[in-house]
Amino acid sequence: MGLTFLNCDSNNSTFSLYLENNLTTGVFTSDRLQVLKLLIAQAAISLENARLYERLADYSEILERKVDGCLSANQL
C-alpha cells in the first residue's frame, strides 16, 4: 500500500512525502494518518521559516553594507 501526501505552502512551493508498506496491512490507521498530517504541516512551517531566516540574513547583510558605506562617506 502506498500513501502520498502533497503539501503546498504560501509561496506555491510543493513537496510530497510518499510512504509505502507492502509487508503489513492496517499500518496507516486514521490516528497515524493524523499524526503524519501534523508532522507534514510542521515540516512545511519549518521550511518556510528557514527560507524567511535566509532572506532576513541577506537583507541584514545588505543593510550593514549600506550603513557602512554611509558612515565611510560621512567621514570623508
Rank of each mutant, 00 (worst) to 15 (best):
Y53T: 09
L17Q: 04
N22K: 14
Q75D: 00
R55D: 11
A41R: 01
S10F: 01
G26F: 09
L39G: 05
I62T: 06
A43T: 12
L63M: 06
A57P: 00
C70Y: 15
L76T: 11
A41I: 04
L36Q: 02
L63D: 09
N74W: 08
E64A: 08
R32V: 01
R55G: 00
Q42S: 05
F15Q: 01
R65G: 03
L63K: 05
N21P: 04
L71K: 12
F15E: 01
Q34D: 12
D9I: 03
Q34F: 08
E61C: 02
A73C: 09
T4M: 04
L63V: 04
E54H: 08
G26P: 14
E48C: 00
I40E: 02
E54P: 00
A44I: 08
S10P: 02
E54C: 07
T4G: 07
T14Q: 13
L76E: 12
L63E: 11
T29L: 13
S13C: 08
T25F: 01
Q42K: 15
L47S: 08
T29D: 15
V35A: 13
R65P: 01
N22G: 12
D58Y: 01
F5N: 00
N7M: 07
N22S: 14
T25Q: 10
A43M: 13
S10C: 03
T25S: 11
I45Q: 11
T29N: 12
C70K: 10
Q75F: 03
N21K: 08
T29E: 06
E61V: 02
F28N: 03
G2L: 14
N7I: 15
E54K: 11
L47Q: 08
E20A: 13
A43K: 08
S60T: 14
T25W: 02
L23S: 07
L38F: 05
A57I: 03
A44L: 06
F15S: 04
T14C: 08
T29S: 15
E64F: 06
L47K: 10
L71M: 12
K37E: 10
E61G: 00
Q75V: 02
I45F: 10
N22F: 05
C8K: 15
L56T: 06
N7Q: 07
S30C: 04
R55E: 11
N12P: 01
C8H: 11
